[in-house]
Amino acid sequence: MEAVVTDHPQGEFRRRAADRAMHWILRIIASLTVVLLIGIFVFLLKSGLRTFSEVPILNFLFGTRWNPSSFHEPLWGILPLVTGTLFVSAGALLIAVPFGLSIAIYLSYIASRRTREILKPVIEMIAGIPSVVLGLIGLLYLAPLIAKTFGLSNGLNALNASILVAIATLPTIASLCEDALSGLSHRLSESSWALGATRWTTIRKVLVPAAAPGIGAAIMLGLGRAIGETMVVLMVAGNSLAFPRSFLEPVRPMTATIAIEIREVVVGDLHWNSLFAVGLVLFLITFAINSVTDLYLHRTIRS
């Protein structure tokens, strides 16, 4: 049988060369992600570590005052900043976790299919609100409201920031919890009903515990987002370097500090380096949260 298709040696060579070349090009492109992650870490480390040649690392981590621009006695303790971050993210999670979990339970067990299909994208649209917009809402509306409710001179404080950061993390938590709950087998709830449990007991005693690993991961990722949130805290947290004692006091989390001070410092001096060190602390915290979540999820999936 005569072959209609003749081999074209030259074209053949070109195709194979293209195949090999593309393999390597794609491999290099994909490796870029690893390079970037390491690059980010190395750059933070490079500038950040220089801080510690002048400021002892313990003074940096546990010092209770941050005042780098003081002429007489500059102080580099990030504890008030870390506490600010903790206040705001803890407050945000206190609001967003029950709220988000309720939405997730509603979406996965109570809502009709149609309602779910409309509501889920609506909740996810909240993630599309730029955080500068949330900050603006906080400045214009929430701050006066909080000031009036609690009789304060202004409403720019940890509470205000917590509420808005909660809104920012809500879609993450709600949608990941929903994934965890919807991923459960239908048989689980049916066998619980068969034992005479009500729907409410089933949700409380069977479904939520069964989805606990996923819900835990959702909370962790929400925490990561809350810690990294910058614009909201920059605009409404009140910018005070005093050590916070209550939610009604102004705070200045780590992210806000970096954003406020970085444009006013001399490139490469101690203050500049110390802000990279703050960035390094942020990076390590979020990295740890992600890794722990990852490990935890992998372990529970395997077992």
Partner: peptide, 12 residues
């Protein structure tokens, strides 16, 4: 195009 695919990839 489905039938032609095998020939196309040979550079025709």
């Amino acid at each position: 195009d489905n039938v032609a695919y095998g020939l196309e990839i040979q550079g025709i």
